[in-house]
Simulated scan of single mutants.
Amino acid sequence: MFTGFTDETVDFMWGIRFNNERTWFEAHKEIYLTQLYQPMRELGSELYDFIRDKRPDSGLICKVSRIYRDARRLHGRGPYKDHLWIGIRQPADEWTARPTFWFEVTPDGWSYGLGYWMPKPVTMAKLRARIDRDPGTMEKLTRGLNRQTEFVLETEDYKKPRSQAPSELLAPWYQAKSFSLCHEDKLTEELFSRDVVDRVKKGYEFLLPYYDYFAALDGDPDPRDA
């Protein structure tokens, strides 16, 4: 059971940020395993069970990220990441093209939410077509998002909108090439106790209707065939 991260968790992440080399990591690997990786696994297990109970037929899995960087993508950086995260997602090779619940801890803070980081262009076309057919459903979801303060909509936008939104309220969805519903925080006290579990569960419960809406896009007709 997750009981919270520790000061050693944070010290390790700062340490690997400034000592990103194999010798340092190997000397501190036990701290990584016990103070970062294992607590993250325990937290992920609890959050996954929560989502699975809410959506038992969703087929989601939970993955803890690797601390090792892909050797093909170092680009002058060290071989290790200075952060760790979990993703609750579909078991797809191109998982970044599917909506994903996540939780991440870094040396500076923590974040969680629902990410759709690399949806395919046809998926976003399906989203716009669905909103055109039924703007009311997304308007309701967007108003709910705008009324709360836990999550913000973060988008990577097209240089030019692909089409005209039915209303100003829905314009951000028409401009988005990718997006996430994200909460970011500093190293608050709740991160070092079980309080963060309850907060993230409450947040995930709020996000579930958004997940349902986006996860169903794959089954929509391809608007290019219309």
Rank of each mutant, 00 (worst) to 15 (best):
G219E: 13
G78D: 06
L114Q: 00
T34Q: 15
L33M: 14
Y210M: 02
E94A: 15
V196T: 06
A125M: 09
A165F: 08
V196Q: 03
A215D: 12
L60M: 09
D7K: 09
A71N: 14
H183Y: 06
K120V: 05
E21T: 06
M40W: 05
H83V: 07
S163V: 03
L47Q: 03
D70T: 00
A97L: 12
R199I: 11
R69M: 11
L207R: 04
D7E: 13
E30H: 13
H28L: 13
K177T: 02
K120Q: 15
A215K: 05
K159A: 08
D212C: 03
L191V: 05
E205Q: 12
I31E: 12
P39C: 09
K120P: 05
D212K: 00
F50Y: 13
G109D: 07
E184N: 10
K201I: 01
P99N: 00
F151D: 11
V64P: 00
G4H: 07
Y112E: 04
Y116W: 08
W85F: 15
F25H: 00
A27L: 14
T96R: 12
P223C: 01
L191T: 04
V152C: 15
P121E: 09
D53Y: 09
G59L: 02
R52V: 07
W110M: 12
R130L: 14
M124T: 06
E30W: 11
Y32N: 10
S178R: 01
A171H: 04
R77M: 15
I51H: 00
K159T: 07
L36P: 06
S178P: 03
L207E: 06
S45E: 15
K160E: 13
R66Q: 06
V122M: 10
F12Y: 13
Q35A: 14
S111F: 07
L33I: 10
F25N: 00
W173I: 07
T6K: 09
W117A: 15
T106I: 09
T137H: 13
F12T: 07
G136Q: 12
R52N: 10
P56Q: 00
P39D: 04
A97P: 10
D108M: 12
A215V: 11
K159E: 10
T106H: 04
P166S: 03
G144C: 03
